[in-house]
Design a protein around this nucleic acid. Structure first.
Length: 338
DNA sequence: TAATCGTGGCA
DNA sequence: TTGCCAAGATT
């Protein structure tokens, strides 16, 4: 066992997180899988409430496999990266039909499932079955980059190969579930992106970056991008006499895939008039709501919401106060303000 | 290899 | 206010 693994395991006994909602003895593989998917690019604090709500609706893999897609999406709405939810549902169905409802135990089978890549597969095997399988999530990448002063940004395949090599090198044969949880805990609570708490770190005395006071240099920063592109769209909020609003299910790919949203069109008079006529020939604009910005990782979206009177509207009109459908965050924001 | 895919918290 | 980016995978 490497010194890093030994130090981390010792630290874990007293300091590790052992009461997260998806942790149990023995581990529940469904909970482990679900949490790992929710935790992709998402912090623990954000996931906890979603996880608890989700396992009440879908207590086990069979319940999830038998669920309607809209019910799954509704429980995921607000968490983001919605392909995760669609793939989660797909995988539940695959396991139900191809694996007799039992989560597969082999790495090759697990990594072949939709939404599960090499790191998530490793985490499932390690945390769920205690197998000696490396992971390489953001916490491990950051911690090992500092410890070994790895040169180059993650976007370079050469850097990722080196980090995987190091991750495998430190992954112990025994106590692997504890090690995996421990190194993620250290990454999340001590070896943080900004202001790492090296004074509390069990591996600081052997950490290259800490010893040379270069915690800010490693991991190497992402090359700066130009300004984020900006887009402006119009939301048309069709409202009938019963104060119900029209929502449309978005296609299963692209932004907000599988969620329900307003009619959307370009932000100009001609496009707006056309979209209104096409939806309901007797509809008329009531008023414009205030324009607001919604920020994504890769662009900024300006949303121009317009409230439209839509007499006779019936199909796919819903009461905003008792909506059971998943909606994008900005749509939910508008619905709550109506 | 580089884009795409959400949202919210924090410095 | 703006920029950064989190328990990554997919195309």
């Amino acid at each position: 066992m490497t010194e890093l693994a030994s130090d981390i395991l010792h630290w874990f006994k007293l300091n590790g997180r052992k009461n997260l909602p998806w942790q149990s003895t023995p581990p529940n593989i469904y909970h482990i899988w679900l949490s790992e998917i929710m935790l992709q690019q998402t912090q623990v604090i954000t996931v906890i409430d979603y996880f608890n709500k989700f396992i009440i609706c879908f207590p086990d893999l069979t319940a999830l496999a038998n669920a309607k897609e809209d019910e799954v999406m509704s429980n995921w709405a607000g968490l983001g990266y919605y392909s995760r939810a669609r793939n989660l549902h797909k995988t539940a169905k695959i396991i139900a039909s191809n694996h007799k409802g039992v989560f597969p135990k082999k790495y090759d089978e697990i990594v072949a499932l939709p939404g599960i890549g090499p790191s998530t597969a490793g985490a499932i095997l390690s945390l769920g079955s205690g197998l000696s399988t490396p992971i390489l999530d953001g916490n491990v990448k950051r911690t090992l980059s500092r410890y070994h002063k790895v040169e180059g940004h993650y976007s370079l395949s050469k850097v990722m190969e080196e980090l995987w090599r190091l991750a495998k090198h430190h992954t112990p044969q025994t106590k692997n579930a504890e090690y995996t949880q421990a190194i993620m805990d250290i990454g999340a609570t001590i070896c943080k992106p900004k202001n790492p708490l090296c004074g509390n770190c069990p591996i600081a005395s052997h950490c290259g970056a800490c010893l040379s006071k270069e915690q800010g240099i490693y991991p190497n920063k992402k090359p700066k991008k130009d300004k984020l592109p900006e887009k402006t769209i119009t939301f048309l909020i069709f409202k009938n006499e019963s104060h119900e609003v029209f929502l449309k299910k978005r296609p299963g790919r692209g932004i907000w895939g599988g969620l329900w949203s307003f009619v959307e069109c370009d932000d100009n008079t001609e496009a707006i008039d056309l979209a209104i006529r096409q939806h309901n020939d007797s509809a008329k604009i009531i008023r414009r709501l205030s324009k607001f910005k919604h920020t994504f990782t890769h662009f900024n979206l300006w949303i121009n919401p317009i409230l439209v009177d839509s007499p006779g509207g019936l199909a796919n009109y819903y009461d905003a106060g008792s909506l059971a459908l998943g909606t994008p965050a900005p749509v939910k924001k508008i619905l709550q303000a109506l």
